Simulated scan of single mutants.
Amino acid sequence: MTDLTRRTFLSLSVPFVVGACGRRSAEPASAPPLASPVSPRAYAGPPRGWGDEDPHDWPGRRPYGLPVHGVDASRYDPNPDWRGAAQSGVSFAWIKATEGGDLLDPSFSGHWNAAADAGVPRGAYHVYYHCRPAEDQARWFIRNVPRQPGSLPPVLDMEWTPFSPTCTARPPAAEVRAGMAIFLRMLTAHYGTRPVIYTVPDFYDDNDLGSFAGYEYWLRSTAAHPTDRYPGGPWTFWQYSGTGTLPGFDGSTDLNAFNGSPVAFQSWLARRSVR
């Protein structure tokens, strides 16, 4: 089980060290510019050495038609060879940093430093808990994630938490969006760039995130193109598999693609990196 949801909450059972009330007026007035999408093209196959333990038979638009691919990593990827991964085509990585207001992924600093040493652009993500104030969670993330210029923007991972032993709350949508707005504003002020929002289909639908404007999205969709699963929802990153394989990583891992060309990705990095 390698998707962000199951990784996150299975980890809680293993000991380790470690929007303004739904009103649009509390959200940013406009979204940052999106990347230029890649024109549809024939299926080109995965990056060199990449595969999938449970591949989906993609009809029409396939993720491997996109040229810029990356990974996300956590304690469930204990010793990646980041240089080998970079040589195989990993162009970016998001690394799990924190959960709620008091949990730190024990592999964060190792992944953070090793990915940078390998020349992989990397950022950090936070798994939001619906039982902690948004302010506490933002402060916890800021306490543990360095503000290093050139890093990818931070990510807010928004999902329901049914596997958590301590927090299975499902607040009303307006309350969810209000908490998101607080967390995102605090991180924007600290890191000098707006975070990216990661989410999954049921959470997106339940909380009407299509109305939550002003931020770029990283969308999970392992059996449909994002434009089919999230109609009308703009996206910058697509998590298309939780069972991927690639050089440098043991076992299966999440695979992601950027919605643009290599040139567009470099432009995006220059515009959206931590200041």
Score class of each variant (00 low, 15 high):
50 W>I: 01
27 E>V: 09
203 F>Y: 14
11 S>P: 01
257 A>K: 12
219 L>T: 05
275 R>A: 15
248 G>W: 01
241 S>N: 14
177 R>V: 05
88 S>C: 10
229 R>A: 12
164 S>C: 06
86 A>M: 09
196 V>K: 02
103 L>D: 04
156 L>D: 05
60 G>T: 11
94 W>I: 05
140 W>R: 03
225 H>R: 15
91 S>T: 14
164 S>E: 06
71 V>A: 04
78 P>T: 01
18 V>E: 14
209 L>N: 11
7 R>D: 00
183 F>Q: 12
232 G>M: 08
111 H>C: 01
222 T>Q: 13
265 F>Q: 13
122 R>K: 11
18 V>Q: 09
223 A>Y: 02
115 A>H: 07
89 G>V: 04
5 T>A: 06
252 S>T: 14
201 P>V: 03
209 L>D: 10
161 T>M: 06
6 R>Q: 10
127 V>G: 07
191 Y>A: 02
260 G>T: 02
21 C>K: 08
14 V>S: 07
193 T>Y: 03
174 A>K: 07
75 R>M: 09
203 F>G: 08
71 V>S: 04
103 L>R: 14
269 L>G: 08
75 R>D: 01
91 S>C: 14
210 G>D: 13
21 C>W: 10
80 P>V: 00
188 T>S: 15
193 T>A: 04
2 T>N: 11
123 G>E: 05
47 P>F: 01
181 A>T: 12
146 P>A: 10
5 T>C: 03
97 A>W: 03
225 H>V: 12
92 F>S: 10
176 V>H: 06
132 R>T: 06
16 F>N: 06
56 H>N: 09
201 P>N: 12
188 T>I: 14
23 R>H: 13
109 S>I: 01
88 S>A: 14
226 P>K: 03
148 Q>R: 08
132 R>F: 00
172 P>W: 06
80 P>R: 00
208 D>V: 15
239 Q>D: 11
196 V>S: 11
103 L>I: 11
78 P>V: 01
264 A>Q: 07
94 W>N: 09
55 P>K: 05
163 F>L: 07
106 P>H: 01
69 H>W: 08
233 G>V: 01
265 F>G: 13
136 D>K: 13
49 G>S: 07
191 Y>W: 02
142 I>D: 03
148 Q>A: 07
209 L>V: 04
158 M>L: 15
138 A>P: 15
204 Y>K: 10
180 M>L: 15
260 G>S: 02
252 S>I: 13
113 N>D: 06
257 A>N: 14
197 I>V: 15
70 G>C: 08
123 G>Y: 02
218 W>Y: 08
215 Y>W: 09
98 T>F: 07
123 G>H: 05
51 G>N: 13
137 Q>C: 07
275 R>E: 10
255 L>R: 10
145 V>I: 04
256 N>L: 08
19 G>E: 05
